[in-house]
Simulated scan of single mutants.
Amino acid sequence: MTRLTEEQISVSLGRIPGWKQEDGKLCKTFSLPGFRDAVQWVVRIADLAERENHHPELLIRYRKVTITLTTHDKGGITGKDFLLAEQIEKLPIPKAH
């Protein structure tokens, strides 16, 4: 998969609300009801990442999860990043207890 142009990235960002480009990477921060919910949700992301063989950077800060995607061997954003972001968007976020 080849690295996307700025125009391709802009068009693709329109398909995934809340995601943005920062420093050549796709990123978004999600809010979850609590810490345990955040950790369990990240495990579901890990399962997706393993299936796709494409691994995001994941940062858990209490009930916030920041996901950063880039294709390291291509030196930037590719279609693989957008595909994984779209799959992450489909994961239900737990509701508050």
Rank of each mutant, 00 (worst) to 15 (best):
M1C: 09
R3N: 07
R3K: 15
L4Q: 02
T5W: 08
E7S: 13
E7L: 11
Q8P: 00
Q8N: 09
I9D: 06
I9W: 02
S10D: 15
S12P: 00
S12F: 04
L13V: 03
L13I: 05
L13Y: 02
R15Q: 15
I16M: 06
I16L: 05
I16E: 03
I16P: 02
P17I: 04
P17T: 09
W19Y: 02
W19L: 00
W19Q: 02
E22L: 11
C27S: 14
C27D: 07
T29M: 13
F30I: 04
S31K: 14
F35Q: 09
F35R: 06
R36W: 09
Q40H: 04
Q40K: 08
V42G: 01
V42Y: 00
V43A: 14
R44C: 09
I45E: 03
A46C: 11
A46R: 05
A46K: 06
L48T: 02
E50T: 10
E50V: 12
R51Y: 07
R51N: 13
E52H: 11
N53F: 08
H54P: 03
L58V: 05
L58W: 01
L59G: 05
I60W: 06
R61L: 13
R61G: 09
R61N: 14
K64W: 10
V65W: 00
T66I: 10
T66Y: 06
I67P: 00
D73H: 13
D73T: 13
K74L: 15
K74P: 03
K74A: 14
G75N: 11
G75I: 08
G76T: 01
I77F: 02
I77V: 04
T78K: 05
T78S: 11
D81W: 01
F82E: 01
F82C: 03
L83R: 13
L83H: 13
L83T: 12
L84M: 10
A85F: 00
E86K: 13
Q87I: 05
E89D: 15
L91C: 12
P92G: 07
I93V: 15
P94Y: 02
P94N: 06
P94G: 02
K95G: 08
K95P: 03
A96S: 14
H97M: 10
